[in-house]
Design a binder for these strands. Structure first.
Length: 560
RNA sequence: CGGGGCGUGGCGCAGCCUGGUAGCGCGCGGCCUUUGGGUGGCCGAAGUCGCCGGUUCAAAUCCGGCCGCCCCGACCA
């Protein structure tokens, strides 16, 4: 029974003054969420309905691959987190109970579940297993943002697979990938599965499911048959016009010209005809000079992998001491390890001379300096993958799936006995979806001037019924009757029975964004049919007065 | 953590520079009006001006400290 007159749906004409993202503004304006603190949000009834629809889609598809739902506590003893070496993570909330015992608020549940599996699983006969929950996660985010997109507390559908070996893990992983494809297809979103960085989870690799939209915090490189997070994307650089070769590097005076743009301008060459030097200090290794093409940027995730150790950019005193005057450094004659990006093609480049106010031209990698090669640059729009150009779009990370391998089962001693009776480590995967982000992404992707336009699978209600006319009138009686009939036909109906003007009701309905809006008033009686608006596109339709509910239910099933 | 900004009825904002009665729009309550795109009118309720301290006869306003929130960056399963 959802009559708007008695519902808790506080719509606002104006968005919060500090909101930027479309989904943030609209979720607040439409009465779906309210803020409690930084990164802490209450879901009001309609918002929670949408969230629950996203969660339910995930639940159904997980159940369909043989996963079993369960529930674990958020508040946990710190001990297992110490064993997996994750107690040190800054985002992990840590606290003590009255006895002084160390506890954490779980940011994910690998530890808790693996402890159980370690206790319960004895034999290869107990595997494989896929277990999941839909439950709260806590993370002390350095910067919560954009409404519900990045919060300190949020719900996650987190599932975990346990297999006897890598082959089993691959199979469980593939099941999840297929289930996730179905989930996002059902959610009505445009998404890409992309190669991803594994970050703090560790393990053998993973994929993210990304939904392109303006508010996204990540960037995705998308090409024909290719999609990857920019953090890990690899592509072939578009060629650049280089200066003619010289027999040997030649000094040119470049007073005060410390940026690629300045030097390229002064020498009338393309920025890509320069070599850009990026000095870093690598733990237990010292300074390394990373060199990329002048029009390229260093990708720190890729660089970290190439270096195989933590690093930071060098301070200017360190640069001056170990390489040359900042702004004029280059690989030629630099007495440090040099890492040359693979995007630097053969030919003759301009580079810093390691002398004040001076650059060199005619620098040929390999001839004039020796370097290790690695792919450490950020891909750029227009780079080529399989002959096709890529584009780069901002996107929301909706889900992340990981092949964890034995990253957690080893420290937590989750083992089983194989057919030969020998003890083996369990192979593990973990898989997360954020229903809140699914909802926010849907809003971001489909909102228009009037407000939200939900995919039918996520909408808090299938139909909003706008009643005109006061109690006692024929049109009011008709609206009441249709409300009952629509619900009997299996539709979720929000009935706007408020004593309010038509403009207010229509505006609120379009702000909330249910896929269909029905209007019942005097015109309905006169015309003998009910006016129906399809929210996506705001297209006007009609339904007969006889059998309205069936006609509306049928129409609903055809919607995106 | 670095940079920038904001905190004044439920929401959005002005007032602060130059100290002296706390204001506007929307919303809210009552009456009338209107009833297919936020109708119009009259009346009314509602604010410790984020908190603490200081200066002053007097502080929303000036000074100091703290807290909260937002944005950019860093960071981020």
């Amino acid at each position: 029974m959802t009559r708007l007159s008695g519902y808790f749906l506080p719509t606002e004409r104006q968005p919060p003054g500090d909101a930027e993202a479309v989904s943030h503004k609209l979720m607040v304006r439409a009465g779906l969420i309210r803020q409690v603190g930084a990164g802490l949000w209450t879901y009001l009834p309609a918002g929670w309905r949408a969230h629950q629809k996203a969660a339910q889609i995930a639940r159904e598809e997980l159940d369909a691959i043989g996963a079993h739902e369960m529930s674990m506590p958020v508040l946990q003893p710190a001990e297992a987190w110490k064993r997996t070496d994750r107690y040190k993570i800054e985002e992990l909330f840590k606290l003590r109970d009255r006895k002084g015992a160390e506890l954490v608020l779980a940011m994910t549940h690998e530890e808790a579940l693996t402890v159980h599996v370690a206790q319960v699983v004895r034999s290869y006969r107990d595997l494989p297993l896929i277990l999941y929950q839909i439950q709260t996660k806590e993370r002390d985010e350095p910067r919560p943002r954009a409404g519900v997109l990045r919060t300190r507390e949020f719900v996650m559908k987190d599932s975990y697979s346990f297999d006897r070996d890598l082959e089993g893990l691959e199979a469980s992983y593939d099941k999840h990938a297929a289930a996730y494809d179905r989930i996002f297809d059902r959610a009505g979103l445009e998404t890409y599965r992309v190669e991803a960085d594994v970050g703090m989870m560790g393990g053998l690799g993973g994929h993210e499911y990304m939904a392109p939209c303006a508010a996204g915090e990540d960037e995705v490189a998308i090409g024909r048959g290719y999609a990857a997070n920019v953090e890990v994307a690899r592509a072939r650089a578009r060629p650049v016009e280089l200066a003619p070769a010289l027999d040997a590097p030649e000094e040119v005076s470049t007073p005060g010209q410390t940026t690629v743009a300045q030097v390229a301008g002064a020498l009338s060459v393309a920025e890509g005809a320069l070599l850009k030097a990026f000095p870093v200090v690598v733990e237990e290794r010292g300074t390394v000079l990373v060199v990329v093409r002048g029009d390229h940027r260093v990708n720190e995730v890729k660089l970290g992998k190439a270096l195989g150790a933590p690093f930071r950019s060098a301070h200017s005193e360190e640069i001056a001491r170990s390489i040359g005057p900042p702004g004029f450094i280059g690989p030629v004659g630099a007495d440090v390890e040099i890492l040359l990006d693979e995007g630097v093609g053969e030919g003759s480049y301009v580079a810093g001379a390691n002398r004040p106010e001076t650059h060199l031209r005619g620098v040929v990698p390999g001839r004039d300096f020796a370097a290790q090669r690695a792919d450490v640059r950020r891909v750029e729009a227009g780079d080529l993958v399989d002959g096709g150009e890529i584009r780069i779009e901002p996107a929301i990370e909706l889900a992340h799936i990981f092949k964890l391998g034995t990253r957690y089962t080893e420290p937590l001693a989750a083992t089983y006995l194989d057919e030969q009776g020998s003890e083996q480590l369990v192979w593990m995967g973990s898989y997360g979806i954020g229903p809140a982000r699914v909802c926010a992404a849907a809003i971001e992707q489909y909102a228009d001037e009037q407000g939200i336009s939900w995919p039918r699978s996520l909408a808090p209600f299938d139909v909003e019924l706008v009643g005109r006319g006061r109690p006692g009138t024929d049109e009011h009686a008709l609206a009441e009757r249709l409300y009952d009939e629509l619900r009997s036909a299996g539709l979720d109906v929000l009935y706007d029975d408020r004593d309010a003007g038509p403009g207010e009701k229509f505006t609120d309905a379009e702000l909330l964004g249910c896929p269909l809006r029905l209007t019942v008033g005097r015109r309905t009686l006169a015309a003998g049919e009910v006016e129906v608006q399809v929210r996506r596109g705001r297209e006007a339709r009609s339904a007969p007065l006889d059998g309205t509910a069936e006609a509306v239910a049928k129409l609903w099933r055809t919607l995106p």
